[in-house]
């Protein structure tokens, strides 16, 4: 555990609390992509298969259970409690291509051609693009509530912070997980435009608005 990994994980945790806070305080899931949220459930379920057989490190296990539990809970909130506020008409990104493409990448790139390793690789490729339906929804609406942009930023910062973590581990421990690193870099590139607008507008106290 190094400072970058810890900050990345804390950023991931923060993103979930921000999202739950947004839904509860505004009593609405407007502006949140159900499709992205569903992809995250798939990401965590396929990545944390090792919860079934261990090893169960306390920190990792608690976090894994939290990420699975909270993502399922958000889906539940969106599907039932706050269903009328869901922008279903605009939230129509074709996730089939993301799932299919990630599966092909997982078949091509994996540490071993076993079910759990292919699923682990699949989860990383899928996570790298899972925010696309959310960013697409943002593009369609052209603006976003500030709290929603904080959520997206914290979620993106998690993987961005993992990049210096991987550099640190490569130098200090001689350890590199190439699939995670490549997928993490792709994920950060996917977020690049969003980060740019976030830093140039939201941080300066302006509303998140995309050019028409």
């Amino acid at each position: 555990m190094n400072i970058f990994r810890l900050l990345g994980d804390l950023s991931h945790l923060a993103s979930i609390f921000i999202l739950l806070h947004k839904i509860r305080t505004t009593k609405s899931c407007a502006g949140i992509s159900f499709r992205s949220q569903a992809l995250y459930v798939l990401v965590y379920l396929t990545r944390y298969l090792d919860l079934l057989w261990g090893p169960w490190l306390l920190y990792n296990t608690v976090m894994k259970l939290f990420f699975i539990g909270s993502s399922v809970y958000v889906l539940y909130l969106m599907k039932f409690d706050y269903k009328p506020s869901h922008d279903m008409g605009l939230d129509n990104f074709k996730v089939e291509y993301l799932i299919g493409g990630s599966f092909v990448m997982a078949l091509l790139f994996n540490l071993a051609f076993t079910f759990d390793e292919v699923m682990w690789s699949f989860s990383l490729w899928l996570e790298s693009v899972a925010i696309l339906p959310q960013l697409f929804l943002l593009q369609r609406t052209g603006e976003a509530e500030t709290i929603t942009t904080h959520y997206i930023f914290a979620l993106g910062a998690y993987r961005a912070l993992y990049i210096p973590n991987w550099l640190y581990r490569w130098v200090m421990e001689g350890r590199v997980e190439f699939i995670a690193v490549f997928a993490g870099i792709i994920q950060t590139i996917v977020y690049a435009d969003f980060f740019y607008v976030y830093f140039t507008k939201v941080i300066q106290g302006q509303k998140f608005e995309l050019p028409a």
């Binding site: 090792d50 350890r175 995670a180």
Partner: peptide, 10 residues
């Protein structure tokens, strides 16, 4: 080494 086979990140 064996540890390297375990995915220890989130």
């Amino acid at each position: 080494d064996e540890l390297a086979d375990v995915h220890d990140e989130l």
